[in-house]
Amino acid sequence: MKLKFFTKLKLCILPAAAGLLLFYFLPFLKVLYYSVLKGQYQKEFVWLRNYKNVLTNQYFQLACFNTLKLIAICVPLFLLLAILISLLSLYAGRMGRFVRKLSILPLFLPSVSVVAAFLLVFEKVESELPIYSIFLWKYIGMGVVILVAAFSSVEPEIYEAARMDGAGPLTMHAYITLPVCAKPIQFTMILGVVYCFRTFRESYLYYGANYPPDYSYTLQYYMNNQFLKLNYQSMAASSVMITLLLAGFVALCSGRKNGAE
């Protein structure tokens, strides 16, 4: 039997799909299962009681607020800076290449040494500024790498035609680069949101405790503390909610893009 080309392509996806099912979907189902139980060793079905408890918990609310604040402030900054550095580095020739390489370096540094350096710089600062700075400093390089690759892939003929029509650099990037590279930019933004959740390690090291100042108490702290207390039900319920929230966010972004197209 001769398979159609697209059928063959679909079959190629099978190993990845199986991996996704085994390592993501099935564990998530288990987390879902835990989230509706009374306890790990008291397997009593409690419907959505754990969700209610988590949602009404003032520290979960505080953690949500701080996490959203982190995303709302840092992700646009991350995106903006990444776009700016990418564009400037493209214009700067050899210096630009050097800047790009330099910006990716923090990703390879151990968190402990990064935090130690920031502790010296922000010794007296009692706000969320140090954590926001660590986030931007550490992850911006990844954004730059992705965006430079995307910007470089725009056909030069398009810019040439625009230039002949009298468009300046700003106009060209506003009306050509950004719309053409909307998908990579969108991906970078999603990546930025994901990185916001990954700053927990740096934050934990910076404050050196499970109970940081209120302004830095994020969802990861909440979930990590629930984990250490063996309160898996609250942890599972909050995980499910965050996963759904993120999935919704990604779906929303994709939907909008598709609509725009």
């Binding site: 306890g39 790990q40 060793y41 008291q42 250490l228 207390k229 063996l230 309160n231 898996y232």
Partner: peptide, 8 residues
């Protein structure tokens, strides 16, 4: 306490 409260 965590071990006890979780009835583990």
């Amino acid at each position: 306490t965590a071990l006890r409260d979780a009835m583990a």
